[in-house]
Simulated scan of single mutants.
Amino acid sequence: MEFREKPMQNLIRIKEKEICKNVQALLLDGESIVGAYKTVRDQAVFTSHRIFMVDMQGVTGTRQEIFVLPYRKIVHFGIQTAGFGDPLQTSELTVCYADEHEMKFGFIGQEELLAVAQAISRCIL
């Protein structure tokens, strides 16, 4: 997955039943889903404790590479909301980790962005 080089853009919310079954199997007791999103093929699932990033591979997407990124390792994060006249009304979340890498997630609209930012805040403050 190229999440270290480029952001996951134009994330669209999906229903919990559409989340990759392997991610569902990795959820812990008491861990709840804050939001699940997808690009054309890949998924980003934000829970009450961590981020799952799923890289769907192959023609059918049955081969998956899953990255699990705990909120407790986040040093800081930032948000950029959409401005007036932005064609897609995209907002962006940048998450920075102690090992100095950062990840960017582009959301359409800002309601989804703010819900995810609140979940991260609850875990890192």
Rank of each mutant, 00 (worst) to 15 (best):
V23S: 15
E111D: 13
Q80N: 12
I19W: 15
T39D: 07
L88E: 01
I66F: 11
T62Y: 07
G85Y: 14
I19Y: 13
H76V: 04
Q110A: 09
I108E: 01
E18V: 01
A36R: 03
L11C: 09
T39P: 13
S121L: 03
T90H: 07
V40H: 05
D86L: 04
F67Q: 14
T60Q: 05
K6E: 05
F84N: 06
T62R: 06
V40T: 08
I79T: 12
P70M: 04
E16T: 14
M103P: 00
H101M: 05
I19M: 10
E92D: 10
V54E: 15
P87Y: 09
A115T: 05
M8A: 11
L113F: 02
K104C: 02
D42W: 06
I51P: 06
T39W: 08
I66C: 11
E111T: 08
R41V: 00
C123N: 14
R4G: 07
E111K: 03
V45R: 09
S91I: 04
E31N: 03
T62E: 05
G85E: 12
I108C: 00
I79K: 08
K21R: 12
S48Y: 05
H101I: 07
R72Y: 11
R13E: 10
F84M: 09
M53W: 09
A117Q: 06
Q80S: 13
T81E: 13
F67L: 12
K15H: 09
L11F: 14
V40N: 06
P7M: 00
A44F: 14
I19F: 14
E18K: 13
F105L: 06
F52S: 10
I108V: 04
G78L: 07
T94N: 13
I66W: 13
H49W: 04
L88S: 02
T81H: 11
T90G: 03
E65I: 06
P87W: 08
K21Y: 09
N22T: 01
Q64K: 13
R122L: 04
L114Y: 07
I14L: 07
V75A: 10
A44S: 14
G58E: 03
L113S: 02
T60A: 04
L93G: 02
K15V: 10
A117N: 03
K73F: 04
Q9A: 15
Q89F: 02
S32I: 15
L11G: 09
A82C: 10
L114Q: 12
F46T: 02
G109V: 04
S48G: 10
E102C: 04
P7S: 00
C123A: 14
K73I: 00
L113K: 01
V40F: 04
L88F: 06
L88H: 02
M1Q: 03
R122H: 11
R41G: 01
R4S: 07
V54A: 12
P87V: 10
S32Y: 10
L69K: 15
I19K: 09
G85P: 13
V34P: 03
L26I: 01
L113D: 02
E65P: 00
T62K: 08
F52D: 13
G30D: 08
V116P: 02
V23G: 15
Q80E: 15
F67R: 15
I19V: 15
E65W: 06
M1A: 11
P87T: 08
L27Q: 09
F52P: 07
Y97E: 09
Q43H: 11
G78P: 05
Y97K: 06
I51A: 12
Y37P: 08
I14M: 07
V54M: 10
R122G: 02
M53Q: 12
P70A: 08
L93H: 01
L93A: 02
R13K: 11
